[in-house]
Design a protein around this nucleic acid. Structure first.
Length: 823
DNA sequence: GGTGCATCCTTACC
DNA sequence: ACAGGTAAGGATGCACC
């Protein structure tokens, strides 16, 4: 039979010693389909140079005989082909050695220790990646599938009758078809429990919200009174878990989506199901979720046939750097992307809940799933986009970090360059790489503090990638010695040389840049938060390719290329700065790829002409563009003294929109009051061009603070606990706060934000340390006026007023009457 | 017991 | 361990007087 098909999720199984791919997807009639397919399994043995043909034949014969006895079968080499390939840009002769089972490739590779074999490659990609490369059945694209429908067939051990699908097809042929619209069936879920530690407490309720009309809470905790809409009751926790299983089976979604569900919801469900001896058999063939460790102490939960997505992970890698939110809590993220928030409800242990609270609890639970679904729908275009670009299933790309994504992109595009894939570094190699000395990074210009009028700002588009592409920097283009037209780059204590002949890495990077350009254009035409994030996600991917080469875990690790890129970046930015100054502008500041300069009475038109002139001289795809024109900008000194602070400035554009970088205002570890005061001061100064109004405002705030009119909420300091308490060498205030939380049995762990305030201590107590004055928000106490004046407000505004030669310290500390009269 | 520099630590910028 | 380096700045740690 024939059907169209869009692949969503990939897995594989063994049958009689052979591997089969199992691909779950849909057709345009919205049937859920499982494909069963096989593909050639092989690895590469790269031969040393200049080996005689007869010798090669003898090697082939020798390898052909390899047999390895395994537990219940014997694996052997099926056939061998000789190919002319490319490895790291060099022409090589390589043996393509075919085997029965992907898992055997490692064993076969270890049997290939023959002197004529230089390298063994291509056995560490993972079956799914290998399959996608071989069969070119890439995720989220449409295909025409021809094959045999398995219907109560005995093939593959009767697999089809066990599968919860509409069709199971044994593939005969795959062909491409044009793209069609596709809307997956998406189900968001959320659990409410009495404990947050997995295995402790009980599941009180769960909510399910789908994109096809399901919107329900299931609970065994009855609230007395009349029936509540959307809420269904069951007998007890066991029946609740059974209901979860039956609902998932019935709805049979393509995507089951949670928020932090890898770390909480799914493992919690599993633990409670085990407790009740209930099978959590929601997988397509009746399997239970499988959990894998995924570095950073993280866990991933995989459900076969249903793509389980933990949105938090995708947000972290794809958007977080760009977002305004200071934490990635569902509440803040929903506010930013959906302009919606969690329902207000104070979570407490179910035994202390009052009758009337339950209704709110249900609504709270339901709304979490509503938000999760909403976020998924917003992110869907990017999940698809990433999946198509990286050619890996959504399950992986939603969890992988940027380096893995860069690598996936490379691996899946090697064939176009006839390249054999490089292997992953070994543990020893990783250890060595981590020992490496840091290479010198980008250039940062030391600004002269002051308030400037009329500012222009240029920046290089995709600076790192454009350098890598334009100068052809990569592992495969790194040369031992000079050749015709090669590029020589001077580093600190050595010289590195790169070939002129385009390498596969720079060429692929060029394609990402083009994609990003397109998104940026769309964003400019009609801006919204999501488009902004999308454009940024591709920028991150492009930028990560630079970081990727310097990353110790990379297959195509090449610190020489990274170091060359930064060296070239420093040359170009410095050269551009001097050209800008020579033209009659005055550079105020520059960081890595951007330059802010005083317009010095030149017009915007003139400036754009000048920009064109610079661009005409830039090599390759390098490009300088106008970031914006600003009406005013402020740079301050460092806290310590006279020099201008880097990475700290505030700009205002012609529409009075602020752009603040580095100041305490944008740092989440400063109290709200200090941040707001600084923000207001900056705003007034940039809007008015002088400090008069903001000085009055400051005095008012100081007065309020001194007379204890400031609410505690505004004085809370939030700091992230980055490691476990015992690992801290230095006991800082936030560590003390975390210790207090432990004592009070408030849950706190690595990664959480710790909140505290600085309180007065009993008079007479001698103490210089801030940590001795730490109190948790729930602890009664008076805020420490001196601390907040001298260590929060003063440092936040001192350098700003310094620009106008005003000594804020005097105003704040009380010598003020002598200088300013009133107050 | 105070001073001042080194170190730890978090967060930001690009 | 899960992209890189550069930088500010608070608080503690500790040698030293």
């Amino acid at each position: 039979m024939k059907t169209d098909f869009i692949p969503l999720d990939y897995d594989y199984f063994d049958f009689r010693g052979k591997n089969y791919a199992r691909i779950i997807g849909r057709n345009s009639k919205n049937q859920k389909i499982c494909l069963i397919d096989s593909c050639p399994i092989y690895l590469w043995a790269i031969l040393k140079e200049n080996i005689a043909e007869r010798k090669i034949q003898r090697i082939v014969e020798k390898i052909q005989k390899i047999q390895i006895p395994l537990k219940n079968r014997i694996t052997r080499v099926e056939k061998i082909e000789i190919h002319e390939k490319s490895f790291l840009g060099k022409k090589v002769t390589a043996l393509k050695i075919f085997a029965t089972n992907y898992k055997d490739l490692h064993d076969i590779a270890s049997q290939l220790k023959i002197p004529e074999i230089e390298k063994r490659r291509g056995y560490d990609l993972g079956f799914v990646t290998h399959y996608i490369i071989e069969k070119k059945l890439t995720p989220l694209n449409w295909y025409e599938i021809e094959g045999e429908v398995l219907s109560n067939s005995l093939e593959f051990g009767g697999i089809d009758s066990a599968l919860n699908t509409d069709l199971t097809i044994f593939v005969k042929n795959i062909s491409n078809t044009p793209d069609k619209k596709f809307t997956p069936c998406v189900l968001a879920y959320d659990l409410e429990t009495d404990e947050i530690k997995i295995g402790e407490g009980e599941i009180l309720m769960f909510s399910l919200v789908s994109n096809n009309g399901i919107k329900k809470v299931f609970t065994w905790k009855k609230s007395p009174g009349k029936k509540i809409q959307n809420v269904e009751y069951v007998k007890d926790e066991a029946e609740l878990i059974e209901t979860f299983v039956s609902q998932i089976k019935k709805i049979n979604p393509d995507f089951l989506v949670g928020y932090f569900s890898d770390g909480f919801d799914l493992p919690y469900l599993k633990a409670r199901a085990e407790k009740h001896k209930i099978k959590l058999d929601i997988g397509i063939e009746g399997s239970e979720p499988r959990f894998h460790r995924s570095g950073l102490g993280g866990i991933t939960g995989k459900i076969s046939g249903i793509t389980h997505i933990d949105l938090l992970k995708f947000i972290r890698t794809a958007y977080s750097q760009y977002m305004q939110s200071e934490t990635l809590s569902l509440n803040e993220v929903a506010k930013e992307f959906l302009q919606d928030e969690k329902k207000k409800f104070q979570i407490q242990h179910s035994t202390t809940l009052k009758k009337e609270d339950w209704k709110n609890y249900y609504e709270y639970n339901l709304h979490d799933s509503v938000l999760t679904l909403g976020l998924f729908e917003k992110m869907w275009p990017d999940l698809v986009g990433f999946s198509k670009v990286m050619q890996e299933p959504i399950f992986e790309i939603s969890r992988n970090g940027m380096s893995k994504n860069v690598e996936s992109y490379l691996i899946h595009n090697l064939e176009r360059f006839n390249e054999i894939p490089e292997k992953r570094p070994t543990h020893n190699e990783i250890a060595d790489r981590r020992q490496r000395e840091k290479y010198e990074g980008a250039f940062v210009f030391e600004p002269t503090p002051g308030l400037y009028n009329k500012i222009g700002m240029f920046d290089f588009t995709s600076y790192w990638p454009s350098i890598i592409v334009s100068f052809n920097l990569s592992k495969s283009t790194l040369l031992e010695k000079e050749e015709k037209e090669s590029t020589k780059v001077k580093l600190k204590n050595k010289e590195v040389i790169f070939s002129k002949k385009p390498g596969f890495f720079p060429q692929m990077l060029k394609e990402i840049i083009e994609k990003r350009k397109l998104f940026k254009k769309e964003l400019k035409e009609k801006p919204d938060v999501m488009k902004k994030s999308r454009s940024n996600a591709y920028k991150l991917l492009a930028n990560a390719s630079y970081g990727y080469m310097g990353f110790f875990g990379a297959r195509y690790y090449c610190p020489e290329a990274s170091a060359a890129a930064t060296s070239i970046s420093r040359d170009f930015i410095k050269k551009t700065i001097s050209e800008i100054d020579k033209e009659g502008y005055k550079t105020i500041y520059s960081d890595t790829d951007s330059i802010a300069f005083s317009m010095n009475n030149k017009s915007e038109k003139q400036t754009l002409e000048f920009l064109k002139k610079i661009n005409s001289k830039l090599p390759g795809i390098m490009e300088l563009e106008l970031e914006d024109f600003y009406s005013r900008g402020l740079w301050v000194t460092t806290r310590a003294g006279k020099i201008g602070a880097k990475k700290k400035y505030a700009l205002i554009d012609k529409k009075n929109k602020l752009k603040i970088r580095g100041f305490e205002t944008v740092r989440r570890d400063w109290c709200r009051l200090a941040r707001d005061v600084q923000n207001k001061v900056l705003k007034e100064i940039l809007e008015n061009g002088n400090e008069k109004k903001s000085l009055e405002y400051l005095k008012e705030i100081v007065k309020k603070l001194k007379s204890r009119q400031i609410s505690r909420e505004e004085l809370i300091i939030k700091t992230q606990l980055k490691k476990s308490l015992s690992e801290y060498k230095s006991i800082s205030p936030h560590v003390v706060a975390a210790q207090k939380m432990k004592e009070q049995e408030i849950p706190i762990s690595e990664g959480n934000l710790v909140e505290y305030y600085i309180a007065e201590i009993p008079p007479g107590t001698k103490s210089k340390l801030v940590r001795e004055k730490v109190k948790l928000p729930n602890e009664p106490g008076k805020y420490n006026i001196e601390y907040y004046l001298e260590r929060q407000i003063l440092p936040a505004v001192e350098n700003i007023f310094q620009v106008f030669n005003i000594n804020t310290s005097e105003i704040i500390k009380g010598k003020r009457q002598m200088t300013l009269g009133e107050f």
